[in-house]
Amino acid sequence: MVEATVYILRCLDGSYYTGITKQPVEARVWEHNNLPDEKSYTWNRRPVELVFSETYDLVKDAIAREKQIKGWSRRKKEALIALDYEGLPELSRRSHLIPKP
């Protein structure tokens, strides 16, 4: 079984980058900060800092989670980074359509 890690980086400009890796996440963060890749989102936003990670047993689950997080607002990503799982539903872009009790 191959594990995969979904991670969020905080970039120098304050933006967030969400990615996935099958290598140790610390090694991937090192690559973002040290390897030349001028086409990478993080290239001109270094240094980057790891602020969140989740590891999955199945790569397909990690890919699905990465896609989910990439679709989230900044506020929702920050709630995830703060491990505020209870607050996530309220930050949904469509939460205004859900009747409140």
Rank of each mutant, 00 (worst) to 15 (best):
Y56V: 04
D84W: 07
R46H: 11
A64N: 01
F52N: 04
K76P: 00
E49A: 14
L80V: 06
D57V: 08
L88A: 00
A79E: 02
A64L: 09
D57A: 09
R74H: 07
L80A: 10
S53D: 05
L83N: 12
K70E: 06
L88E: 05
D84K: 13
W72K: 07
F52M: 11
E78K: 03
I69N: 06
K76I: 06
K60R: 11
E49M: 14
R75M: 07
D84V: 09
L88S: 02
G71K: 11
I63N: 12
S53A: 09
G87N: 06
S73C: 03
F52T: 05
V59C: 04
E78R: 01
D84A: 00
Q68P: 00
R46W: 08
L50W: 14
A79H: 02
I63F: 13
G87M: 03
V59L: 12
V59P: 00
G71V: 14
E86G: 01
E86H: 07
F52S: 05
W72C: 01
A82M: 08
L58P: 00
K77Y: 00
G71W: 11
D57F: 07
S73V: 01
R65K: 11
R75I: 10
Q68F: 09
Y85L: 12
F52K: 14
R46E: 02
W72D: 01
L50V: 09
G87H: 03
I69W: 00
D61E: 06
L88V: 12
R46L: 04
A62E: 08
I69T: 08
